[in-house]
Lab assay of single mutants.
Amino acid sequence: TRVETATETAWISLVTALHLVLGLSAVLGLLLLRWQFPAHYRRLRHALW
């Protein structure tokens, strides 16, 4: 049971790290898009909202 718990903890930390990385890359990508294509971003936002 001790090994299982350790594996579970490792998986949880791995998944958390993955989610953090994905979230950060998504935010960075959005910022980059907004910085590179302001007109396109505004049009996209206008279409979405």
Rank of each mutant, 00 (worst) to 15 (best):
S25P: 04
E8V: 02
A39D: 14
H19K: 05
Y41P: 03
T7D: 01
L24Y: 03
L24G: 08
A39K: 14
Y41N: 05
L33Q: 03
Y41T: 13
Q36C: 10
S25H: 00
Y41H: 07
L24S: 04
R34K: 14
H46A: 15
H40N: 12
W49S: 06
T5N: 01
S13T: 15
L30S: 08
L48F: 11
F37M: 08
L31A: 14
L28T: 07
S25G: 05
W35L: 06
V21R: 01
L22R: 03
A6D: 02
W35P: 09
A6T: 12
R42P: 07
W11V: 13
L22M: 09
H19M: 15
Q36N: 12
L30Y: 09
W35M: 08
W35I: 10
L32K: 00
A10Q: 12
A17C: 12
A39W: 09
Y41D: 02
L28Y: 06
L32S: 09
L31T: 11
T16D: 05
E8N: 03
T5G: 01
L48K: 00
R43T: 12
E4A: 08
L32I: 12
A26R: 02
E8W: 01
A26E: 06
L22N: 00
T9W: 10
L14G: 03
S25W: 06
W11H: 10
W35T: 09
F37T: 06
L28H: 02
W35A: 04
W49G: 06
G29Q: 05
L18Y: 05
E4S: 09
T7Q: 14
Y41E: 07
L20R: 03
L22W: 05
W11D: 02
A39S: 14
R43Q: 14
T5H: 00
L44H: 01
Q36S: 14
E4L: 08
L24Q: 02
A10S: 13
Q36Y: 13
T9E: 10
I12V: 12
E4D: 09
L30N: 00
L14R: 03
R43S: 12
L28Q: 01
L44R: 01
W49T: 09
T7E: 07
V21G: 08
V15Q: 08
R42N: 11
L18F: 12
A39P: 05
G29R: 02
S25R: 04
L18T: 08
H19S: 15
G29P: 04
A39R: 12
R2Q: 14
L44G: 04
T16H: 03
L33G: 02
L24N: 03
G23W: 05
A26N: 02
E8H: 01
V3K: 01
H40Q: 13
R2P: 12
L14Q: 05
G29H: 01
T9V: 11
A6R: 12
G23D: 02
G23K: 01
T5E: 02
W11Y: 11
T5L: 03
T16K: 02
L31Q: 05
R43M: 09
R2I: 14
L30P: 02
H19G: 15
E8S: 07
V3W: 00
A6F: 00
H19T: 15
S13A: 13
E8A: 05
I12P: 01
L30R: 02
T1H: 07
P38H: 12
V15Y: 07
T9N: 08
H46M: 15
Y41M: 15
P38S: 10
T1D: 03
L30D: 02
R45E: 04
A39E: 14
I12Q: 06
H46K: 09
L30F: 14
E8Y: 01
A6H: 04
A26G: 10
Q36E: 07
L24D: 01
V21N: 00
F37S: 04
H46R: 09
T1N: 06
A47P: 04
L48E: 02
L14A: 06
E4K: 07
T16E: 00
A17D: 01
T7N: 11
R45N: 04
L31W: 09
T16A: 15
V3M: 03
V15R: 05
R42K: 13
A10P: 04
V21K: 01
T1C: 08
H40V: 11
R2H: 15
W35S: 07
